[in-house]
Computed example of a mutant assay.
Amino acid sequence: MPIVEAHILQGYSPTEKSRLSSALTDAIRFVVPAPDEAITVMLHEYPSEAYARGGQHRQPAPALPDPAQIVRDYLAAMEARDLDTAQGMLGDGFQMVFPATQPMTDLSELIAWSKGRYRFVKKTYDGFDAMHSGGVAVVYARGTLYGEWMDGTPFEGIRFIDRFEISGGKIVRQDVWNDMAEVRAK
């Protein structure tokens, strides 16, 4: 039964501490074959005046935003066609790659590219998976697409996976995979 103890400065909200406990539990599960209920995480909090580094008292760093929530908010803005909000969630050097496309760096490129493909498309989500890899947060959004082809014929149940990279609270990359071309070819 693994027991993990972490020492943190006071100042994090209950939600942030819960996120930290879940992330530590997940990290243990990557290596140790224990069920979640067998993993104990204890957070020990200390007031900032009880901690010094380099002779200086320090304040806790602000918690990073939940990367899965960033992706949810971005996708909701895109579906609502609130492009200004969605664009504001993108970081410097942002790239998105869809099947059979070159990387796009601006949402207007995506809108122009998709105009001749369908009248509209929306997503039903089966889940969001978040992890940390190579210095960025990685979020996978998965589910199915539904909408209407250009001739007005409805479609649904088309599988998709979107992979996002988040750095500094901003989306810096989006890769999209889906079965739209295969379904359309039928």
Rank of each mutant, 00 (worst) to 15 (best):
D84A: 15
D66Y: 12
I39G: 06
Q59W: 00
A86S: 07
P65F: 11
P33L: 10
R53D: 05
P67K: 10
F30S: 05
G55Q: 02
T85E: 09
A38W: 14
L43V: 12
E37C: 08
A27K: 04
A27W: 00
P62M: 07
A27Q: 05
D36I: 01
A76L: 09
P67L: 10
P67E: 06
A50C: 06
D84F: 07
A34G: 01
A61H: 03
Y74K: 10
M42K: 11
P65H: 04
V41E: 05
I39R: 13
V32M: 10
I70F: 14
V32H: 08
F30K: 09
A86P: 00
L43C: 04
D66I: 05
P47H: 06
P67G: 11
A77P: 00
L83R: 03
A50M: 12
A63C: 11
E37M: 09
P65C: 12
H57I: 05
A68E: 08
A27N: 06
L75I: 02
P47M: 08
A68D: 01
Q56S: 12
V32D: 07
V41H: 03
R72I: 05
L75E: 07
A50N: 13
E49N: 11
R81D: 10
D82M: 06
D84E: 15
A34E: 05
H57A: 12
T85D: 03
R58K: 14
V32K: 06
M42Y: 06
L43D: 02
P67N: 10
V31D: 02
E49T: 11
E49G: 01
L83Q: 01
E45G: 12
Q56K: 11
T40A: 15
V71S: 07
P33Y: 08
A77K: 01
L43W: 03
R29M: 15
D26C: 06
D36Y: 11
L64Y: 02
F30T: 04
